[in-house]
């Protein structure tokens, strides 16, 4: 059990960037953005393609982030300028990205076993592989967590957050909501793509199918985090989402340890999220019954 602890924590931190991206759209912008199902493997594909061509890991991660940001902008334009419902706009980009990802990689699967990754770079400083993953996970989560905390405290960030709560209000204050929505989707998908780039390097491959279920994993992390660690302030929310991602990885590791077939993982996650999302309803009916008595 103990030997599972460290890798699970590390994985949770690498996935936390993706969860923060989903938090941004789902909670801050109040949009269920399915683009992430395509931008996550996009980040992986871009990073893998660049790494196999000999680019250094930091460049690969940076370009992956930019690619993800562009994917977010596409969804944003489809939604705001072309007035396509957000859910459908995300699906359109996600499907289009499947082809894009195949083009980027040239094939469905790209191995990274023989190339230098950000992890082998850190390892060369004289630590174990498991420690390298933890270092990268911690560093990236802290870095992007702090960046997000700063950005969403600025005037622009506050305008984006207000957009999610009340578009009418922020327009009446002179902010173009098209711009704030596109910006939010841009940042979200950049984070998701960077997470994809890191996960691909940690797994040792990028695969065109690795995005399936990204949104559900993200939602599971967000909801678990919110329930366990609270939503008092924006800072509190960010920390909750990161911890939620870690807890989610522990839950997965635990049920696998207990003998659940890995093939059932996505079913398990979906049921978990469906249950968590319907909690308010259950709670209400239970409370209602209490009152009736």
């Amino acid at each position: 059990m103990l030997d599972l602890l460290l890798p699970t924590l590390s994985q949770g931190l690498l996935w936390a960037l993706m969860a923060l991206g989903v938090y941004l759209t789902y909670r801050v912008l109040d949009i269920a953005d399915l683009t992430v199902e395509g931008s996550f493997p996009l980040g992986a594909a871009v990073a893998a393609a660049l790494l196999t061509k000999g680019f250094d890991p930091l460049t690969a991660i940076l370009v992956a982030g930019i690619a993800g940001a562009l994917a977010g902008v596409v969804t944003g334009i489809l939604h705001t300028k072309l007035k396509i419902p957000a859910l459908l706009a995300g699906i359109l980009t996600m499907i289009a990205l499947y082809s894009v990802n195949l083009r980027v990689m040239g094939k469905a699967n790209l191995s990274l076993l023989r190339v230098d990754t950000v992890f082998s770079f850190i390892k060369s400083m004289g630590i174990s592989n498991a420690q390298a993953v933890l270092v990268v996970g911690l560093a990236s989560t802290v870095l992007f967590g702090l960046l997000m905390y700063w950005f969403f405290g600025t005037e622009i960030g506050a305008a984006i957050r207000a957009t999610g709560f009340n578009q009418q209000m922020i327009r009446a204050q002179g902010v173009d909501t098209n711009v704030t929505i596109i910006s939010g989707l841009l940042i979200s998908n950049a984070l998701v793509a960077i997470s994809g780039a890191l996960i691909a390097q940690s797994n040792g491959f990028a695969d065109v199918g690795m995005g399936v279920g990204t949104i559900v994993i993200g939602l599971a992390s967000v909801i678990i985090g919110e329930v366990l660690f609270g939503t008092r302030s924006f800072k509190n929310c960010l920390i909750s989402v990161v911890l939620g991602s870690v807890v989610y990885r522990f839950v997965i590791a635990l049920v696998l340890q207990m003998g659940m077939p890995p093939n059932d993982l996505k079913l398990f996650t979906s049921v978990l999220v469906a249950f968590a999302l319907s909690m308010p309803l259950f709670k209400k009916s239970i409370d209602g019954r209490k009152v009736a008595k």
């Binding site: 600025t154 005037e155 506050a158 305008a159 207000a162 709560f165 002179g174």
Partner: peptide, 30 residues
């Protein structure tokens, strides 16, 4: 419900309103 952002603090709402009609910048909001 229409005039304020429910999930933000009173002072955050006021800070946004204090810049009505101005382009938001990277300056700290509060």
């Amino acid at each position: 419900m229409m005039g304020t952002a429910a999930g933000m603090m009173i002072e955050e709402n006021l800070a946004i309103a204090s810049r009505r009609g101005k382009m938001p910048t990277f300056a700290w909001s509060s």
